[in-house]
Design a protein around this nucleic acid. Structure first.
Length: 120
DNA sequence: CGTTTAGTGCGTCAACTGCA
DNA sequence: TGCAGTTGACGCACTAAACG
């Protein structure tokens, strides 16, 4: 059951991430911050052309891996933060819609009372 | 008390997407 | 097509509440 992006199309206006987030008035799950700011302590690589020995290659591979892990660590934190925010938005929207729904039901009952023929 | 259980956060991997 | 970013899934550690 591969993980493909066929989530269901039932009125998704808050699409998690890359699913062509639809127009809603809520912030989509994915809000891109101007990234690129590397966490402290990250040193850019030596110019690739200067590597020769297996030792150096191994060190470079290790360094690349650590850099990737560090970046992904930060990305995961940010992703979770956005997800929490997204869930909060959904919850508050639910609250609003519940109130709205309640009002509509009340209105409907009122109208029913007005319109129904009186049976003495 | 010590043990168990449920909830939460984190780091990592892997799959996926969009862009140059 | 390769690369970087995003995110679901997994396992681990930690904490608070419940229980005997």
């Amino acid at each position: 059951m591969a993980v493909t992006g066929d989530e269901t199309d039932e009125e998704t206006e808050l699409a998690p991430s890359h699913m062509a987030a639809a127009t809603g008035d809520m912030p989509t799950y994915q809000i891109r911050a101007p990234t690129t700011a590397l966490p402290q302590g990250v040193v850019m690589a030596a110019s690739p052309g200067s590597l020769h020995s297996p030792q150096q290659l191994a060190e470079e591979a290790t360094r690349k891996r650590e850099l990737r892990l560090m970046k992904n660590r930060e990305a995961a934190k940010e992703c979770r933060r956005r997800k929490k925010e997204y869930v909060k938005c959904l919850e508050s929207r639910v609250a609003v819609l519940e109130v709205q729904n309640k009002k509509l039901i009340e209105e409907l009952e009122t109208l029913k009372d007005i319109c129904s023929p009186k049976t003495d």
